[in-house]
Design a protein around this nucleic acid. Sequence first.
DNA 1: TCCGCTACCTACTAACGAGTAAGACTACTT
DNA 2: AAGTAGTCTTACTCGTTAGTAGGTAGCGGA
Lengths: 228, 228
Amino acid sequence: METEQRGRPARVKRLPRAVRERQILDAATAVFSQRGYHAASMDEVAEVAAISKPMVYAYLGSKEELFAACIKREATRLTESVGTVVDPNLAPEEQLWRGVLAFFTFVGEHRDSWNVLHRQVTSEGHPFAQQIAEGRKRVIALIGALLSQAAQAQGMPDYFVPETKPIAAALVGAGESLADWWLDHPDETAKAMALRLMNLVWLGFGTLVQGRTWHPPAGPADATPTPA
Amino acid sequence: METEQRGRPARVKRLPRAVRERQILDAATAVFSQRGYHAASMDEVAEVAAISKPMVYAYLGSKEELFAACIKREATRLTESVGTVVDPNLAPEEQLWRGVLAFFTFVGEHRDSWNVLHRQVTSEGHPFAQQIAEGRKRVIALIGALLSQAAQAQGMPDYFVPETKPIAAALVGAGESLADWWLDHPDETAKAMALRLMNLVWLGFGTLVQGRTWHPPAGPADATPTPA
DNA sequence: TCCGCTACCTACTAACGAGTAAGACTACTT
DNA sequence: AAGTAGTCTTACTCGTTAGTAGGTAGCGGA
């Protein structure tokens, strides 16, 4: 079934390298997002990019290099989205609010990017797990510094400061989980999502900073199980 | 280099099926945890289990079935760990505390199990992503019900009740993230981790229930970026 | 009009990994 | 001792996929 006319076989458009590279990265992001790194095949990437496989190799290199390029591009996009709205001269509270809002806005608009960065790469043993884990740690450290600044401004004692680190980790996890929840409730706006996170975590943090702490209810003797 | 004595070639111990099945499941959990589903090979599972590949297939079936068996076993273990300490007659606050504590205790003691359940399966396109995602949703719904119960007991208006769902999602995510943070700070006890989560989230939730809400600081005109 | 550069392709190789065929060994029963 | 049920292995097949060899074709410049 050669529907093609002989002699003029639907000439392939010749495009400059930069354009093809973008097309390939777009295709790769979509395929990696949908299939995951291992299950994704270079053949499918080439097909989605509407180009032949050797071109993919010629421009972006091996599968690992291609994936690395995807991660790098998407991570840069996300970082810039958040970075441009956060001004270190602002109060910690407002920095956090702006960052959180920018984060949810980005996720809402770049679902595949978020998927590649968050869900595909987290598993141990993944070629890029470490790289992503380090990026995540940097974000946590950044937020931790923000919280510690706020805590000290509120006059919290020094021994509380290290606690801001795990709190930052919890905040990041809560944000990720809310982003996942959002995928099942797409009618919500980015702002509403950002508000939820701030309401929960900032209020909780604020209460902690005021010196109020929660402690386990005293059961009969030692009803609550304690680990060794 | 045949170190083996001829005639008595280090007889393979013949063990009953139940024992081998446990060995294979243990090995599979470790390998899946380390490599991820796709990158794990049945050859490696067999090797770690110190048995030949056909035995793996004879006892546990295909790769998918083997992985399903792993998930089922680990999920049951986790569910039971939490389920046995949570008594529906207790106050929501104490149920949450006991559940959170049991969760961290389990993660601390079964790192591979947690890895398989949490990090390996979350990516879209994974054969079991849906199954795990549904389990996660059930947990979120359960905690949401707990929170909603607590909210109503505090006399919160009905319109607040649906908000407990995303809050539950955030709580679960915060717990997962704290569990990951814990891996980098192994000296912490399960109880300390559980306390952190309760302090942050229950205080935040409690503050919300008291009717206090957070709202974005009013910048000049509309300094905070808003999504379309 | 020829040269050379870059874009582009079809069609292969080589390796890896899921799954199996076919049978050997062992222990328990009768 | 012979039968039999269950344990265990070696050595394959066969499909999939990363990566490449080797060549065609349009386009700018001399």
